[in-house]
């Protein structure tokens, strides 16, 4: 396959960026999108040019490191991560636009790499359970009803890639935050911090400068892990419940 790529190039966080056009040849339909970018980078290095910087790690669709908005879609046209997107989803001669996640809470570090540490700080605000560590407890010591376990697992699938923020016209992190809150709040292990978790994580989300939710549904459409849109309603319910109890909860 022969392709024309238009890639966002930006030297660093402080310099302005622009789209640059590159032609790549000899692309196999079995290559992943990232392998196609590796091919481009090899050529750029041989020519003595600066390779395109992009985030990637496991390349198995489970770590959440890869990003990229491809032709206006977070993670491209298929419902998967960019590393699991294959070039067979494109046709010979296509022009493909590759851009970084866009949100003021995700500043561009270089080219296609953005700083997603705002997500880490949301997790630090309450995306954990406080337990005295030691030997692993007996798995059946705390019974969890099957529907609750399924609900928790559905939300635990979130890999924190940030596609929801990238797809949202408001740069909102509601789907990510709701996935993390719902995952723990439904389980007995998460119950002691149920109220503080949702109040603190939503508070941190707002502090990071993410936008609000207008229920456009773009996040759930873009999510490679299929976190459903009703997760946001479930989080809102938890938040309103915690707000009513805020006095008793304390800090």
């Amino acid at each position: 396959m022969k392709l024309t790529l238009r890639v966002w190039r930006q030297k660093n966080a402080n310099s302005p960026g622009a789209m640059a056009t590159y032609d790549v040849d000899g692309i196999s339909t079995d290559m992943s999108f990232l392998e196609m970018l590796d091919t481009l980078n090899e050529e750029l290095i041989l020519k003595g040019e600066e390779p395109v910087a992009f985030d990637h790690d496991c390349r198995e669709g489970i770590c959440g490191a890869c990003s990229l908005v491809i032709n206006g879609d977070a993670h491209g046209p298929e419902r998967t991560t960019t590393c699991q997107l294959h070039m067979r989803s494109f046709s010979d001669g296509d022009t493909i636009d590759v851009e970084p996640w866009r949100a003021s809470a995700f500043p561009v570090v270089k080219d296609l790499v953005v700083d997603r540490s705002a997500f880490d700080r949301i997790i630090q605000a309450g995306g954990y359970i406080s337990v005295p560590t030691g030997a692993a407890p007996e798995a059946h010591a705390t019974p969890v009803p099957k529907p609750d376990a399924d609900f928790a697992f559905e939300h635990a699938e979130c890999i924190g890639c940030g596609a929801c923020v990238a797809a949202c016209p408001n740069g909102s992190a509601m789907l990510f935050t709701s996935a993390k809150i719902n995952h723990l709040n439904v389980l007995p292990q998460g119950a002691p911090e149920r109220e503080t978790r949702v109040l603190d994580m939503v508070g941190q989300m707002d502090d990071e400068g993410f936008g609000g939710c207008t229920l456009t549904g773009e996040c759930a459409t873009a999510c490679p892990k299929g976190i459903p849109l009703p997760s946001i309603a479930a989080m809102n319910k938890e938040w309103l419940r915690a707000t009513r109890k805020a006095k008793k909860v304390g800090r």
């Binding site: 908005v69 206006g72 866009r102 740069g171 400068g209 936008g211 207008t214």
Partner: peptide
């Protein structure tokens, strides 16, 4: 919301 998404996609 507008501040949270200052630059749109090309």
């Amino acid at each position: 919301d507008i501040k949270a998404r200052p630059s749109g996609y090309v």
